[in-house]
Design a protein around this nucleic acid. Structure first.
Lengths: 195, 195
DNA sequence: GTGCGATTATTGTTGAAACGATTATCGTCG
DNA sequence: CGACGATAATCGTTTCAACAATAATCGCAC
């Protein structure tokens, strides 16, 4: 069934030692478990918050991205259509900027549109691409969350010193270096700067 | 609609500063984003591996837990039934040991049972509880994965030094301290020692 | 311009998770 | 004993994510 490269035959020799390994088998495994567990626990509370307004962490992430570009001057949409149009972003680019890489941005925009938090707009230059824009209601709901989100972050991580947080961020970034599924972290300098 | 305590009125005053904040708004937010992003990327490859045998990360996690108790001497099930019974674990305890806290362990066991990787067994002492046990096929599929899982971990995190990994684990543990959704990390010393 | 590969988005379908309500059993108190 | 609250598991339903297949459009070669 073609294990699709992930289950390919990679035998470096450490295969034989399974079963008689250290309590945590290896430092890498312990680090991975801590990573997954911490992420799950911390994201849990935020997810519940978002859900009160029909959002998931992914859709919230998209709204943050759209808000980030909504106020830019040379934004793509400002030259089309009526003056009330807000700057948007093609769906593919949205997918590239998301913190958790997710295919199927279409469905997420569907939900945002149903909630009236985003709109679609076809690009005239290239009619394949669709721009998604945040609406006023979307800005409102984001604004409504802003304070609470920051406070939750403070509650969760405020007990760590600034240097610890920076250190953790640095280590996490380094941990990502080797992973890059598919290869190379987008040379196009994609900014994943918002939730 | 009762925001269920997560959206409760928590006004510490930093609410007002939204919008004019630093590039990363705060070190806590940056740390959170790095955490989520790294976890998503690293877990992605493992999930695809597990999926080749019909498992998710959660069901794999359960199998690891069940394997961990399958060989224990004073195991709960050894005193019931036939001699071929393998030690198992009540569903609730499984849920407590999982890396990502998940309700509805029932459904996960359903899948494992359908895949013939686990079996159910009702406890005679307390007929409410169900013990789940790993089967030989379950042990096989785990064994089949063991080497690859370790190698993926090495690929992902092998470029970091041991001290970096330990440091990262320590920071992640500390990050979890304050979160504890619902309060207090189970005083019953639950071990989350396997994937 | 016509056809062909590549890109963008959508859709269909399947599988998994979240949440709440429900059932069965236990322990205990009267 | 019989009722009550508590606990363990299951089920119903809705929502969400993953994967593959499809449709529309573009860029370019010819």
């Amino acid at each position: 069934m073609k294990p699709s490269r992930v289950a390919s035959t990679r035998s470096k020799g450490l295969a034989a030692e399974i079963g008689k390994t250290n309590p945590f088998q290896s430092a890498t495994q312990e680090a991975y478990l801590n990573l997954i567990r911490t992420a799950a626990i911390l994201s849990n509370q935020l997810e519940r918050l978002f859900k009160t307004r029909g959002l998931s962490e992914s859709t919230y992430n998209i709204l943050r991205i759209l808000r980030g570009v909504a106020g830019l001057q040379g934004a793509p949409l400002s030259k089309y259509g009526d003056e009330h149009t807000r700057a948007g972003l093609p769906l593919t680019e949205i997918g590239e900027r998301m913190i958790a890489p997710v295919p199927d941005v279409t469905r997420l925009i569907d939900r945002l549109e149903r909630l009236a938090f985003a709109t679609r707009r076809r690009c005239d230059k290239d009619r394949r691409v669709i721009y998604a824009c945040i609406t006023d209601a979307g800005l409102d709901v984001l604004h409504e969350f802003d304070a609470t989100v920051m406070e939750i972050h403070e509650e969760h991580l405020g007990h760590m010193s600034r240097s610890e947080l920076e250190q953790m961020s640095a280590l996490l970034e380094k941990a990502r270096d080797a992973a890059n599924p598919g290869g190379r972290e987008e040379g196009k300098q994609a900014r994943k700067d918002t939730i």
